[in-house]
Structure formats: C-alpha cells, structure tokens
Design a protein around this nucleic acid. Sequence first.
DNA 1: GCAATTATAGATGTAAAGGTCCGTTTATCC
DNA 2: GGATAAACGGACCTTTACATCTATAATTGC
Lengths: 152, 152
Amino acid sequence: MISQTAEYALRAIVYLGNQAGEACTTAQLAGEIDAPPSYLAKVMKGLGRAGIVGSRRGLHGGFTLSRDPNDVTLLEVVNAVDAFHRIRNCPLGRLAHQSGLCPLHRRMDDVMAAAEKSLQRTTIGELLEEPGLLCTVPCIAEPVVLESEAAL
Amino acid sequence: MISQTAEYALRAIVYLGNQAGEACTTAQLAGEIDAPPSYLAKVMKGLGRAGIVGSRRGLHGGFTLSRDPNDVTLLEVVNAVDAFHRIRNCPLGRLAHQSGLCPLHRRMDDVMAAAEKSLQRTTIGELLEEPGLLCTVPCIAEPVVLESEAAL
DNA sequence: GCAATTATAGATGTAAAGGTCCGTTTATCC
DNA sequence: GGATAAACGGACCTTTACATCTATAATTGC
C-alpha cells in the first residue's frame, strides 16, 4: 500500500515543510531522511512533476515545497510517486459484477477506501504542528542499536 | 498491502468455503478463481502449513477447508501467505522514537492498524452468507469485454 | 503390483520495484 | 568565460515478487 518510494517521498516532504522555504539539495535531503541519494533524485522528480515541490539548479539550488503544507495531503504525496490502487472492477472480470463487487472484493475495496480517505484527511501541515519530534528531524537522535545486534 | 498472492489465497479460500467439504484439485481451483495453476500450488502449500486448508494426495484428492469458515478471518488468510506489516519502530531507527512513533509514522501505522483490524473483523463465513454472488462462483458470468477493447 | 492422479519440493525463469551511474543542462561565483 | 554546484534524463544493474517446470512421494483403482 505504501511503497518504499512513497515512504521516501513523504519523509522528504515533511522535511522540506519544516525548512521554511530554504532550498535543500538531494544529497542533503538524502542524508537527513536516510534515503539512497540517487534514488531519491528520481523520487523528487516525481514530486516536481506533480507540482508539490519546486526546484532550482546550480549553486545554492535544490528543492523547496511549492505549496502551503496545510494544503498538501499525504494522499497527494503518495499518488505523486506511486498511485494508490482501489478495486473498481471485478478482478476476475465477471460480467455479473460489472456494477457492484462481490462480497470479498467489496470488503477489500472498503479497506482501501478507508486507507485512502485517511491519507486524504491528513495534511503535511498537521504533522508539522504536532508536538512529537519528526523523525526526519533528528535532535538527540542516534541510530538505534537493535537488541539482536547488541547481544553479539 | 494485499499482494497478488494474498488475492489468490483469499479467492481460493472463499471458493473452498462454498464447496461444503468437497475436495478440489489445484487445477480445478485455478480455473475457477482464475489463478496460474502452478503458482497457486505454492500458495495452497502456504495455506496448508498455516492449517487453514487440508490436503489429500492421489486420485480424488485435493484441498478442503479444514476449519469452520466462520472461524477463519481474512487477516489469517492474508498472513498465511504474505505477512501483514505494521510499523512498530521508527523506520529511520531514531533513538528518540524507540517508544512512540513520530507524527508521520504514527499516522501511517494508524492506517495499517485500521486495515488490519478491518481484515480481522471479517470472516470467510460472513462473505459466504452475503447475498451477492461470489465472483469465485461464476453463474451467468462471462469475461468482461472492456469498452476500450470493444471499440476496436 | 501397476498405472493413473494428485500434492509436495525445489530449481529455474520473468517482470517489476528499487537502486546506481553518468553525461547533459542550468545556474552561480569568481 | 571558466570553474563549480546543482537538477535533469536516461541507461543500466540488483533484488524481490510472481510464475513456470520437473522430479518425487502419496493415494487410489484395477
């Protein structure tokens, strides 16, 4: 549902939203949100095409949020890089189900619909205003050493 | 979220649930639920290991539901073949978020949690009792000709 | 016991998602 | 204008999900 690509996109947008208009290069961003730099470049391209971020080339260039964070929903970000899929027709192509899915797929799509709506309800702005630290903004933060590793 | 593999598994279980104990071979099943036979064989193995279906080899063998359909949840079926993933720790491994996710991942996991719960609430039995035709039980059903194809 | 039928196991192939690399273009600084 | 720093575009590689194939083991009917 949320691909790795969408994860990167969301992290990047949240980070940019916190930067108050300061341009941020792909390399910087990649470091901050812990994404592979060259792949992130691709993801940012997608966000640019969708009009969510703007970009400037050359020295002191980089990416900025091009819209009000309160106006950008999580769903928009996800859809920009990796479209969210609802079940619109019977996956088996049954004629009898052209209008109206069977009970199974009705439920499945209900789940999808709820997820979609939930992503649409939340804006980047809301996340920025919430008290908790954003994990794209590490303060005291250090990489976690897992118990399994620590035991070695 | 729901992989192709999970789709096949759910279709198969729904179909078997409707067969009232009659054993069904992989080849038969594959035809009915429109899944690649040799791949379905693998999927069924997974369902067998999870104890959801039982199998018999040899002539007149095949698969049967090994439990009461009212007792098998959609989530169980999905988990049997392709575990459902929640966000339990900060994906960036931030120490500051070992207990409690950041606002972004809190939302993301909320979406997952809702989906998980929704899948857990519904049983195979409920689907079988619903009025609509199951699309794994084609009656009048013929493959749909899409408008885009019909226009050619 | 033999032939047919079926699940089981595992090796292999294919397609899509995830990820890297490099040359080109645009902008800035000196 | 030359050097540098960035996004851009596209070719390429890698990993994983999806799918196929073949051989083996269990079961049945004769």
